[in-house]
Design a protein around this nucleic acid. Structure first.
Lengths: 204, 204, 204, 204
DNA sequence: CATGAATGAGCGTTCATTCAT
DNA sequence: CATGAATGAACGCTCATTCAT
């Protein structure tokens, strides 16, 4: 009814938030529906009013996280006589938004990097699709850059997954406490890697 | 000893091999003790004679993989007036051995990257420890390099995890079929990233 | 009353009709209140305004079917010097009306023969009562017949249930598709059984 | 092992017996696996060591009952110049064995007549198959009899189900307490029905 | 040492019923 | 009267672990 105190979407959101927290803490398999409903403060049956199954909530959690990530990534626009600084700044902007989002939401990081794996092949389809899309997008961007002479020639798809992996590496290490990390540091080190690799320039 | 037809260590190894195979195929949670004993050809009770629990075998599998990985990584030795080519070649050697091992053992890759996560905090202690050790080692190497002027100044620990992550990114994408990968490509792209990052040299 | 657009009895009837359909299709246990309200086009809560429980509707469905069956069965009236043809014709009339009703309403047959069973003792009280009443009535009729010399002496109650069972047997086999059946055939075979049994008359 | 105190078959039998009792008391749907294991005195998991599912035990119970029933029914052998008494005696033998078995095992009767129905179409396949087989067999016997002039011409299949139904009617009424029944009475009334129907001979 | 039958806590899911609106 | 979101006991089933042989 119009006068119900809690709307359907709100309840869904409430359960989703509880699920995100529980999955982040325990992972998909160790988390039980019991944990989610306890965290939500709802009854067992109510859960199934809003989600068809445990996997359905998990998928919803993943999709939600994916969406928020993809929102942070903007295409890099290049002027005709291209300006290195402008390009670098746009890439830095992507890194900055991603870092800000991730570092402020450790739960999502844990779900995304630690928990989504290990499901049966069919169940992790969402995850694989996400990384496929992301990899394709980064790869296409790299190829544009190569064509324009901004990016050095390379195997774009492999390099794309290496770059994505380097971000994952930093965030994952941070999420399990191996490394302290703040937005500025993450952005700076990522940009350094992108711009210069690790080694010093050879003298010549 | 004392005339037993199969030594204790051999039986352990037999079970370990079966477990590695099973965990690689199904992941920790979807794999059952039933699968492992079927693959081993031993009885249920026998399994518990050699391992205290399902988690114990999994830990042993992880430790085994970790050991084989760490064997591939050699410290970089630097001559006094240091020779860039010598350094790069030693790093390339590490990358090459790692790539060869990983690409020839997709099972270990799956266990390592996809299945080790999602365990309870205490259970994943091995995994965390491994990445911690690996991160520390890479970080220390970077710091040595910085001191010698080989490596550009950076936050060594964060950069270490970024580098490790970039390798994981390539291997993971390969292991789930998002990207074709061979040893030469992986080594080349990894080295390029290390040496030059992604962007072209600025014109100066 | 008082201007309500739909009377209480009508609503009850509407739900009852829906329930009959649903129970016929799915049986008592596999049918859910959800099915009944969907078929009725009413809300969940409304259902409980007209029936106290799922069992209550089922009982009502049974009572309704019982009533329609009992309506078809007329007492056999016997003239003083009794006329065999008249008696047989009246029995045949009962059989005919029953057959016509049953064969035109397979849903009721399913509910009656297949679904009513398996309930707890207390729940099936209606069913037992019905068969008790029916058995008593047939038995009393047989005893009248015996007294008049129309019916051969026998254990009337046992024979009554055997006769009822023979009709149930035909209808049940038909309802699950084991046998094709039309009104004429059913009546004829039932009457033959009543009049002559199965075997040929001995020669003498 | 050879020395286990309880053989696999015995355990199966123990569970089967418990299940038969529970299904007889409560019916398929109201009976729970919990009831069966309580009656068996075994643990939950043990049940699933011997039967794959609740339905599997139920099917096994049905098959067991069917087998014991079919054992009681012998084909009627007819001599060339046929002897009415010999035929009747053989039919009576079948009736007697059936009656003895059924009346000594009320649980089976309840399962068979009251509980087997109401399952989903596919689940009751066993039951339908059984009645189909039984009907076919009786029908074929009737047709043999008709050819030989022993049985009066009739729709054999319909009559077969009517005869089976008459036995079911007596037994069902007995099993729920509507009628007292002993072996002699049941056999006598069944034979009377078969031999002479219900009505007295017309005067002619 | 080796075995495998037995265990039971725990899982994800269903559904008849209630009650605040 | 009518609604439908909320409830929670109960269900069938799994599986890591134990222990008598």
């Amino acid at each position: 009814m119009a006068g119900s105190s809690v709307s359907r979407a709100d309840r869904q959101g409430q359960i989703l938030a509880a699920a995100r927290k529980v999955f982040a803490q325990k992972g998909y398999y160790r988390a039980g529906v019991a944990d989610i409903i306890k965290e939500s403060g709802i009854a067992r049956g109510t859960f199934y009013l809003y989600f068809n199954s445990k996997r359905a909530v998990f998928d919803a959690v993943l999709v939600d996280i994916f969406g928020r990530i993809l929102e942070q990534i903007h295409s890099v626009r290049v002027t005709d006589p291209w300006d290195e600084n402008a390009v670098v700044e746009q890439v830095r902007g992507n890194a900055q938004r991603l870092a800000a989002m991730m570092l402020s939401d450790p739960g999502s990081v844990r779900v995304l990097f630690a928990e989504a794996a290990g499901l049966d092949e069919e169940a992790s389809v969402n995850l694989v699709e996400f990384y496929d899309r992301l990899g394709q997008w980064v790869s296409a961007s790299l190829e544009d850059g190569i064509r324009l002479g901004i990016v050095r020639p390379c195997n774009a798809l492999v390099t794309a997954h290496a770059l994505i992996g380097s971000l994952r590496g930093m965030l994952w290490a941070w999420s399990i406490g191996l490394v302290p990390l703040d937005e500025a540091t993450m952005v700076q080190e990522a940009m350094n890697l992108v711009q210069a690799g690790v080694l010093c320039r050879p003298a010549t």
